[in-house]
C-alpha cells in the first residue's frame, strides 16, 4: 500500500430536489481519501447518502459543491478509472456469461481478441470457465454476483466502487464471495470503496471503516481495522478483536439503543 491517493472526495455536498419540491441534502461536506490498494468501507443508517457518494465517484452525479478525484484527476463524468458493482448483478439476460463479462470492455471499444482474453482469464480465476456459454438465468445468485464482479474487473479500473455487492445472497454464499473479493483485491492490488450495511463485512474486509451520520450524511468517525489477513475475511471472523470493532461501530451508529423502550430499561 503506497501513499498515492486513488480516490478522494473534497468537501462534497449533494442536494436533491425532493418530490415535494423541497431541497434535500443527501450528503454534506464529506471529505475522504482512499489510498492505493486500500479497502475502505462506508457504513451508516439507510438514506445517509452512501450510494450518492458512490454515484458521484463514478461520475454519474455531479456534486452540488466540492469535488471528487480519481487518480488525481477531477471526476467530470463517467471515466475508465472507476467501475462499480451493485447489489443487483445487472447481468444482461440476452448475453452469455462471457459476453456479460465483456460488456464494459466492449463499450470501451477494446479489440475483440483482447476482450476475450481478459474475460476468459477472469472467468478462469473465478472458477466460471465452464459456464462461459451459459445465460444468466441458468446460474445461481452467487455465481451471478461473481460474473458481475468479473465484468467490473474486466475494464481494469484503478478504483472499485462496491454498493452492498453481496446483500442479496444467502449468508454462506456471502462469506465465500467475500473471501473471493478480498483475495482478488489483494492480488490485483485494487483500491476499493465498499458500501455495506453489514458491520461484520465492513470489519472483515477493510483496512478502514468510515461511519456516516443520519441525513444529511457526514463522516462522523473513522476506525482503522488493525487485524491481519485482509485477504481472508473468514479467518478474520475468528479474531476475538472483531467483536470489539463491531461493538464500537454499533455504538457509533446508535444501534444498541434504537428501538429499545425508552423508559423502564434497567440502567
Amino acid at each position: 500500500m503506497s501513499d498515492v491517493v486513488r480516490l478522494e472526495y473534497r468537501n462534497v455536498t449533494m442536494r436533491f430536489v425532493a418530490a415535494s419540491g423541497k431541497a434535500l441534502t443527501a450528503v454534506e461536506r464529506v471529505s475522504l481519501a482512499v489510498r492505493d490498494g486500500e479497502v475502505v468501507s462506508l457504513i451508516g443508517p439507510s438514506g445517509c447518502g452512501k450510494s450518492t457518494l458512490l454515484n458521484i465517484g463514478s461520475g454519474l452525479y455531479t456534486p452540488s459543491e466540492g469535488e471528487a478525484f480519481v487518480d488525481g484527476e477531477r471526476v467530470e463524468g463517467p471515466n475508465a478509472h472507476v467501475a462499480f458493482m451493485l447489489q443487483k448483478d445487472l447481468l444482461l439476460p440476452w448475453r452469455t456469461v462471457l459476453e456479460n463479462v465483456m460488456f464494459g470492455v466492449e463499450i470501451q471499444r477494446l479489440a475483440l481478441p483482447e476482450r476475450r482474453r481478459r474475460a476468459h482469464a477472469l472467468l478462469e480465476n473465478f472458477n466460471l470457465a465452464e459456464f462461459a456459454g451459459h445465460y444468466p438465468h441458468q446460474l445461481s445468485g452467487g455465481m451471478r454476483q461473481r460474473v458481475a464482479l468479473a465484468r467490473t474487473l474486466a475494464v481494469d479500473p484503478s478504483v472499485l466502487l462496491l454498493d452492498e455487492p453481496f446483500s442479496a445472497v444467502d449468508a454462506q454464499t456471502r462469506m465465500v464471495l467475500q473471501r473471493g473479493l478480498a483475495q482478488t483485491l489483494k492480488r490485483a492490488g485494487k483500491t476499493a470503496l465498499l458500501i455495506t450495511h453489514d458491520l461484520l463485512e465492513a470489519v472483515t474486509l477493510s483496512d478502514r471503516v468510515l461511519v456516516m451520520s443520519r441525513r444529511p450524511g457526514r463522516v462522523i468517525d473513522e476506525i482503522r481495522i488493525e487485524l491481519p489477513q485482509r485477504d481472508d475475511p473468514i479467518a478474520r471472523r475468528r479474531e476475538p478483536r472483531v467483536n470489539e470493532y463491531v461493538a464500537r461501530l454499533m455504538d457509533r451508529l446508535d444501534i444498541s439503543h434504537a428501538g429499545q423502550p425508552a423508559a423502564g430499561a434497567s440502567a
Binding site: 463514478s58 454519474l60 444482461l92 460488456f103 466492449e106
Partner: peptide
Amino acid sequence: DPDLVNLARAFKATRAQIFWKIEFPASL
C-alpha cells in the same frame, strides 16, 4: 432498469450504445 443504463453510462457508453446494447434488446 435505470441501473442498467447507469451501468452502461459508467462505462462511458454513447447514447447509441445504450440504445443498441441495452434498450433495444430489453424491448424485444
